[in-house]
Amino acid sequence: MATETKATTKVKSRTLFQETWRRLIKNRGAIVGMVFLILLIAVAVLSPVLFDYETDIIGQNMAEALQPPNAAHWFGTDEYGRDLFARVLYGARYSLIIGVGAVMLGLIVGTILGSAAGFKGGITDSIIMRGIDIFYSIPNIMTAVVIVSLLGTSTVNLMIALAFSCASSFARIVRASVMTIRDQEYVESSYAMGLPTWKIIVKHILPNCLSPIIVQITLLIGTTIISASSLSFLGIGVPAPAPEWGALLSAGRGHIRDASYMCVIPGLAIMFTVLALNLLGDGLRDALDPKLKK
């Protein structure tokens, strides 16, 4: 016995987080996505310092209207002479806040519903999941339109509207994971240990469902950013003159023949952000569950 314990003290201890990180940084796509997102977050955080909202972002300067990209205005200017570069960078704030906010809100609600359904099973499960199925069968955008028109257009209301669809996909994922973890022997043994049920769910079941949830978070933020932009494009998202990317696209729509950069640049911003999130999400999925990888 003594030799056994001695030999084992040398075992290198790695937490699951370190293990995942080690595998994640081997994935080139994930690295690219991550670097892009870090830059984007930095820009979003710093943009109020770099630009003054009143003068640089919404201040109009008709003399410089509709200039194509040049040395002074890297992304050109819009029809009111506002610098598109500043507006696109500033717009990252809206997209990220709405994307992350809606997903987090959906995560909380979805996790509660999903774990209740998965853990309780039976009639509770049927009621919750059938409700979510009904919700799922209505197109996301339509639900969002209804909610926004009920609550009024604002950034927070947009977030709430988008959180609904996030909640239903989280609920499904959490329910499925909880159902498989629920019957594991360590859950039974926590009962035998005298742990109260809520503690078992929070400490033993949910942490074991974390991998699919993390992956879903990154992928859903991307989808939500697109939905938010679509709603702004339709004019029911973030109200003008805030430089939300979808709103920028919408503003450029009228000038797509003469000043196509007004559409192309915000479009690319959305595309790269979502692409980066998806790359990171794919990388995370492989890193968290190496068995899935071909």
Partner: peptide, 19 residues
Amino acid sequence: RGNDVAMIFQDPMTALNPV
């Protein structure tokens, strides 16, 4: 449970929480 009576389960491979 756990205080007066404790139980050891059959399969140690699955009786511990992996995380």
